[in-house]
């Protein structure tokens, strides 16, 4: 989507979040030089185009009890990786699944699946189950739990603006 100058002013106004006041779109409009109806119309268009994925909560997983965040990585033969990736997405506890390049020799894995859960032991058991269900247990794989998080703010819409 090609952003208009008005869209950019609106996204600038929105960058810190939606104002926590009764008429937030009117406040955004004041900042962006648009009226309230124009703000909601443009936001609807930006959401339809996927520039704004959604409005609402940006939750920190850890703070709502999902303390075990496991990046599960596998070395899947190239001709099977798409099929395996598609299948893994059907598991309810897989929240993200990507194919990425291997970086040999340090990194032989090409399929990444994020699994979130409340407790580490339960997440590990669930990953074992998933691998077994999909006949992947014999493939080289690793589970990388996060131990610390330093930054989680999501993407800025215009990285060079700050």
């Amino acid at each position: 989507m090609e952003l208009t100058p008005a869209d950019r002013r609106l996204l600038d106004a929105l960058e810190g979040g939606l104002p926590l006041v009764s008429r937030p779109y009117a406040v955004l409009g004041e900042r962006a030089g648009l009226d309230e109806a124009e703000v909601t119309r443009r936001l609807a268009a930006l959401q339809a185009a996927g520039v704004v994925k959604r409005l609402g909560l940006v939750v920190r997983h850890h703070e709502i009890g999902y303390r075990a965040n496991a990046m599960t990585v596998m070395d899947v033969p190239d001709d099977q990786v798409d099929a395996v990736g598609e299948r893994l997405t059907r598991a309810a506890d897989v929240t993200l699944c990507y194919r990425r390049p291997r970086r040999l020799p340090d990194w032989p894995y090409n399929l990444f699946a994020m699994v979130h859960g409340r407790e580490r032991e339960a997440v590990l058991a669930r990953i074992d189950e998933l691998l077994a269900e999909h006949g992947l247990a014999d493939l080289p794989h690793a589970v990388l739990f996060s131990t610390r998080r330093f930054k989680q703010r999501g993407a800025r819409y215009r990285a060079e603006a700050a």
Binding site: M1, L14, K53, V58, Q152
Partner: peptide, 17 residues
């Protein structure tokens, strides 16, 4: 800090990012 923000979740890929 339960929420990092209330508001938009941007997708830079939809803007060519």
């Amino acid at each position: 800090g339960v929420l990092s923000r209330f508001g938009p979740l941007f997708n830079v890929e939809a803007m060519g990012g």
